[in-house]
Nucleic acid binder design. Structure first.
Lengths: 231, 231
DNA sequence: TGTACATCAGTGAACGCGCGTTCACTGATGTAC
DNA sequence: TGTACATCAGTGAACGCGCGTTCACTGATGTAC
């Protein structure tokens, strides 16, 4: 049942040599398995094959290790999103699609990073202004900025569109893991749903003139009173 | 800082009278604050003003209480989604919009329920086949079924569309709480973004014929090899 | 090349804590007669 | 209407556990001379 105990590799040397990296790796795995709240410093140390006190040579405390995972996650995320964006030509719609895929791939391939980054109430680090160039926000905002210049005349708010793509990707990414989802929609492939959804979202947004019959009814009621801002 | 201790109301009677309800209420609040993993039975008992052993008269264990919160959450969710769906006339696009709003409202107004229901790896209860009629899956699937009959000729897969609306709503709902999100997009109102996004998603999906120039490029590569199923 | 010593990166035992859960108990309630 | 008793819904003390963190320590490494 439980995998072979990969924990104590019985180091040959007294010094680990690469403990910081080992701890980050263990934390990624543990956070992927049990979430940030379920994550345990002692367990991370155990996986790295060191005593529970050893991590304190490299991190101030438990939250410090989580913060490091979070930081690296955002860095990697930015790298991937940036790559997806830069590998695209002048076609903005395609660029957004690729970023969406990069997003989904990241969430699937790096669940530990993803959970550390997007767990609700994550106080540990909010790297909104990392000096490192390639963070995800900057990439997204850059992408939006570039895209906006080409299309603004249309009245389309591409910043909002980008936010929507992001949220859509996040929703698909987090929902994909849920067992009941698989049960309720066994025949839907998340990647394809994302792909076509982003397509449709972009197409629908660019087509926002008078489209069919269906879509030109009065703006829905009920949107609460929260739509202030942007003075 | 910490709110006035609403915990020990100093019951007048030895019996609580309504402890089960009080515990569910406390659990909802605590799960909203700290998530399902951070939630603590002892704390729930404290809030209800009883000893830590008292909950065991009403629930088998900690997970049992969480499961109850989860169950009630799904029931309420189904009620709301069902209400949104039934209050709409024949316009399917509008129906989906309303369901999207109901979704977002629920997530915002009932964070405790929402977290209990959608926390990743929620083993406690997967009420896929509740005998109670009004659960959310049934509502959604019904909605899809009804909607599908009207539009299938178009080649539009409305089940997928519904899944996409769901995922989009989930993404916006969960992202809305994140502080960095507010920082990165201070001027975007989630409810409006959802509203217009669902609009665009539906419009774009129904318009899936040859639209503009942008959208008819070859199907994206990279979609991995996971698109099997439905033999 | 060799030696003394500072610094670094671990150990392992211990602490205090809060948790989930159990247990024998007791106060309150309801029901049979 | 009153009494005996079963049942119910709490108490509170205790347990074992695993956690985060501290502490004095020690083995390994690197550097000055």
């Amino acid at each position: 049942m439980t995998k072979p105990p990969l924990r104590t590799k019985k180091r040959d040397s007294y010094h680990h040599g690469n403990l910081k990296e080992a701890l980050v790796g263990a934390a990624r795995a543990l956070i992927a398995e049990r979430g940030t709240t379920g994550f345990t410093l002692v367990d991370a140390a155990r996986r790295a094959g060191v005593s529970p006190a050893a991590p304190y040579r490299h991190f101030p405390d438990r939250d410090g290790l989580i913060a490091e995972v979070c930081r690296r996650g955002f860095a990697e995320f930015g790298r991937r999103l940036g790559g997806a964006w830069r590998n695209t030509g002048a076609d903005r719609a395609e660029a957004f699609r690729r970023m969406g895929h990069a997003y989904l791939d990241f969430a699937r391939e790096e669940p530990g990073y993803y959970a550390a980054m997007f767990t609700a109430g994550a106080q540990w680090t909010v790297p909104t202004k990392e000096p490192e160039g390639g963070d995800a926000f900057a990439t997204l905002v850059d992408a939006i900025g570039v895209a906006t210049d080409g299309k603004r005349g249309n009245g389309v708010d591409l910043r909002r569109l980008a936010f929507q793509v992001w949220a859509f990707s996040h929703g698909i990414a987090t929902l994909s893991g849920a067992p009941w989802l698989v049960h309720a929609f066994p025949d839907i492939d998340p990647a394809m749903a994302l792909d076509e959804g982003v397509d449709a979202l972009i197409r629908g947004t660019l087509h926002s003139g008078p489209p069919k019959e269906d879509a030109k009814r009065p703006r829905s009621r009920k949107t609460a009173g929260a739509n202030a801002s942007r003075t």
